[in-house]
Computed example of a mutant assay.
Amino acid sequence: MTSNLEQKVTSAIHAFCEAAIEKGTFASPAKKDHQLHKIMSTAVNELRTFGSYGLSALKDIMQHESPYVRIWAATEMLTNGDETAKAVLISLAAEEGLLGASAKAVLNEHVKGRLRSPFSVSKT
């Protein structure tokens, strides 16, 4: 029998993956893209509340079959200091098109010390 925590983590990971795949590099119209990003953000913020258990689940999906899931998960994990995320991003940076360009941009921001979570809550 799975625990309540396991169910919550599994649910958050599932929501994150589905939204990342549907979002792709950009979902149209922009309103849909923003909605999908919000779903991913909510999932990540929920996973953060579970501490290392939630972050471990997010780390695990850096190996997901979808490159969209991998790039978002690796970006978040790199902002959390997980250096293993670099290898995932370097691999994705070799891809053609917007996905590869996005991975390169993430790596460049990291090198410059400016990389921030794409899922942080704005403090305005």
Rank of each mutant, 00 (worst) to 15 (best):
T42K: 04
L78C: 09
S102Q: 12
L107R: 00
A87T: 12
Q63T: 13
T25V: 10
C17N: 05
S11T: 10
C17D: 01
I61E: 02
C17A: 11
P29D: 11
I21T: 06
T84Q: 12
W72K: 08
D60R: 13
T49S: 13
L89N: 04
T75E: 07
E83R: 06
C17I: 01
M62V: 14
S52Q: 12
T84E: 09
T79A: 09
Y53V: 15
H110Q: 12
L99N: 08
T49F: 04
S102I: 09
L55I: 10
K59C: 03
I21V: 13
Y53N: 10
Y53G: 03
F26Y: 10
A57D: 02
A15H: 08
F50E: 01
A85I: 04
G113F: 05
H64D: 13
T25A: 02
L78V: 15
N108D: 15
H110T: 07
K112V: 06
I13V: 14
F16Q: 05
A20W: 01
S66K: 12
T79E: 07
V44P: 03
M62Y: 05
S41H: 00
E65V: 13
H37D: 08
K31T: 03
G51E: 15
E109G: 10
K59Y: 03
M77Y: 01
P67A: 13
I39S: 03
I61W: 06
L58R: 05
A85N: 03
M40T: 04
A103L: 06
N45I: 11
N108S: 15
A85Y: 01
L98S: 12
A93H: 04
S91P: 05
F26P: 00
A93R: 04
Y68K: 04
A19T: 00
I90Q: 14
V44R: 00
I21P: 01
L107V: 06
G54N: 06
E109H: 07
N108L: 12
F50V: 02
N45W: 08
D60H: 10
C17T: 05
G24F: 02
A19L: 05
G97C: 11
A57P: 06
T25G: 11
T84M: 08
L47F: 03
E83W: 07
C17Y: 01
G113V: 13
T49R: 15
A103G: 13
K38L: 08
D33M: 02
A103C: 13
A12C: 10
V88A: 09
E22D: 04
K104V: 08
A57R: 05
I61V: 13
F16R: 03
E46A: 09
G81E: 08
L98W: 14
L47Q: 03
K23I: 00
F26T: 06
A43S: 13
V69I: 13
N108E: 15
K86G: 01
A93G: 14
L98H: 12
